[in-house]
Simulated assay, not measured.
Amino acid sequence: MSRFRHYVFALGPLAAAALWGGMYVVSKWSFSLVPPVTLGFFRVALGAAALWLWLGLTGSRSRPSREDWPALVGLGGWVTVTIVAQFLGTELTNASQGSLLTVLTPVFVVVLGAAVRGERVTRTKTAGIALAAVGTAVVVAGQYDPGTVAVGNAAGVGLLVVASLAWAGYTVWGVRVVRRYSALTAATYSTVAATPMLGLLSLGELWYLGRGLATIPLGASSLFAIAYLGLASTAAAWYLWYKGLEYVPAGTVAVFYFLQPVVGTALAAALLGEQVGAWFVAGSLTIGVGVWVVSRGRADQNGRQPRDRSGLRE
């Protein structure tokens, strides 16, 4: 593969962060129509169907070996915890809390990557992540009243922390499957595995709320929200996130997560007319410098394994 294509694919997580930029706004708005766990089930079910179709159209629907099924089911478990904790946490908190707590995901990925895969935590990577975290805080502080960050439901904040940790688990434990097969195969089978788990939790939620599927309004607004969450922020974004893992260490991929609140704020300004000021520009530039510092750091060598039979690193 040419060096140019290598860098293009390595930037897949950047595109994923862009697609996730509007996710919190869409999901928060949708909870008035669809309960959070049920919305998560619809999102993942649609994303799984789209990924399965995509995998078939590419002619690469190779069944993973039996020894890898437990790993894929485990990834589906990480997905389930992420979606449930993220959507319930988003419902109980506000946009500023959700945006600020995204900084925990890259930190968790770096820690888990070092503990599980032996990825080196270099000074360069640490400095870049710190810069990006500071930039995220500046962006959020410039758009919201900092006093509201500490106000809200403590359970919601805790759930968002759990969601960040679970997505870090999905990232780090997915590396082996991604490099053994492909990003598309790993994203597809893990999403398919998560669908029945979320389906059962959705039934429990509807039972607890005393509602049935017939009570959920499937009008144009809710269908648009489900389509965006399922096709854009799940099928496309999860594939692009895993695509980056084919080429760079998990800790390097994770730094792109810091761009999510920047993209979300920029979209709000472009589409909703929200104002952005000097804080947004300064924070965005700081995040950009942090991402550049991490991307310029030397590639991790300790976490790489010999090539397997598919020609990809495990």
Rank of each mutant, 00 (worst) to 15 (best):
N153D: 15
V138W: 08
A95L: 12
V121S: 02
V138T: 14
A154S: 09
V134R: 09
V84C: 01
L112W: 04
A95V: 11
A127Q: 03
A127H: 03
G118A: 08
G152Y: 05
A130W: 08
T102C: 03
K125Y: 00
G77R: 15
V157M: 13
V103M: 12
A155G: 07
G118E: 04
G77N: 12
V140N: 14
E91N: 10
A133P: 05
G158H: 07
Y144M: 03
L112S: 04
V84P: 00
V139I: 14
T124R: 11
K125N: 00
E119L: 02
V107P: 02
V107A: 07
N94M: 09
T82I: 01
W78G: 11
L131I: 04
G77V: 05
A127G: 01
T136N: 10
Y144D: 06
Y144G: 04
Q97I: 13
G156T: 07
R120Y: 01
A115K: 06
V151S: 15
Y144L: 03
G158P: 04
A132R: 09
T80N: 06
Q97V: 14
Y144E: 11
W78Y: 14
G135A: 04
V121Q: 03
T82S: 10
F108M: 06
T124E: 09
G77T: 07
W78N: 10
G152R: 12
L100R: 11
F87Q: 15
V157W: 05
T136Y: 02
G158K: 07
L104N: 04
G152H: 08
L104A: 08
V134C: 10
V111E: 02
T148R: 15
V84E: 00
A130M: 08
E91K: 15
T102R: 11
A137K: 09
F108V: 01
T148Q: 14
T102Y: 04
D145E: 08
V140P: 10
Q86V: 00
G76T: 03
T82E: 06
V79N: 08
Q86L: 14
F87R: 15
T93F: 06
S99D: 06
T80V: 03
L92Y: 12
T105P: 01
T105S: 10
T105L: 12
V107Y: 02
A132F: 00
T126K: 05
A130D: 03
S99V: 03
G158N: 06
V149R: 12
I83M: 07
A115L: 14
P106F: 05
G76H: 13
Y144R: 13
V157N: 14
T80P: 02
V84I: 13
Q86P: 02
K125V: 09
A150Q: 09
P146E: 04
V110E: 01
L101A: 05
G152Q: 06
G147E: 13
Q86K: 11
G89H: 13
